[in-house]
Simulated assay, not measured.
Amino acid sequence: MKNVTITLPEQTLAKLRIEAAKAGKSVSKFMADLAEERIGSRTADPGQAMRQFLSGPLYDLTDENGKAPSREQIYDRSRVR
């Protein structure tokens, strides 16, 4: 489990503490449960994001003449330095 620091307006924090107390939870547990409710179900299948990415549109890497880049162009490290 990781720790996260968030910044909230004073009034929002006060309301958050009240709601957490009503639920019988710490603020940390209350926030963790809210996050899980909101985004937890979206990550139920670890391969889903990869399949979605791979099913997306292909990128056209050809130049204006329809020619694909050469191996040397693809692995040109001088641009990175």
Rank of each mutant, 00 (worst) to 15 (best):
T62E: 03
G47I: 02
G66H: 06
A14L: 10
I74M: 11
A23Y: 07
Y59Q: 06
Q73N: 06
L58W: 06
A20E: 01
D76R: 02
N65T: 05
D60L: 06
S26I: 04
S28T: 11
K22T: 12
M1N: 06
L61T: 03
Y75N: 10
M31L: 15
L13Y: 12
R17A: 04
R81T: 11
L8G: 01
R42V: 01
R77K: 15
R79P: 04
K22I: 10
M1G: 09
E37K: 14
M50C: 01
S55P: 01
A14S: 13
L8F: 07
S26L: 09
M31G: 00
V27A: 13
F53Q: 02
K2H: 12
I18T: 15
D33T: 06
R71V: 13
A68Y: 10
Y75K: 14
S55R: 07
P46V: 06
S55C: 03
V4I: 15
T7S: 14
I39M: 07
S70W: 05
I6T: 10
R79T: 10
A32I: 02
T7L: 10
E19Y: 14
R42W: 04
K29E: 06
P69K: 07
L13W: 02
K67I: 13
A23P: 02
M50W: 13
A20T: 08
A32W: 00
A32L: 06
A49P: 00
G56F: 01
Y59L: 13
I18F: 07
E64P: 00
R51M: 09
M1K: 00
K22V: 12
M1A: 13
M1R: 05
E72Y: 03
Q73S: 07
S26T: 15
V27E: 13
E10M: 12
G56K: 01
E64K: 13
M1I: 07
Q48L: 12
R81Q: 15
D33L: 07
A68E: 04
M1F: 03
V4W: 02
P9M: 09
A35L: 14
I39W: 10
A20G: 08
Q48V: 10
E72K: 07
E72R: 08
Q11M: 11
K2W: 03
A14R: 15
I74N: 02
D76G: 09
D63Y: 02
Q73M: 05
I39S: 06
L8P: 02
S55F: 00
A49N: 02
R38F: 08
I74T: 07
V27P: 01
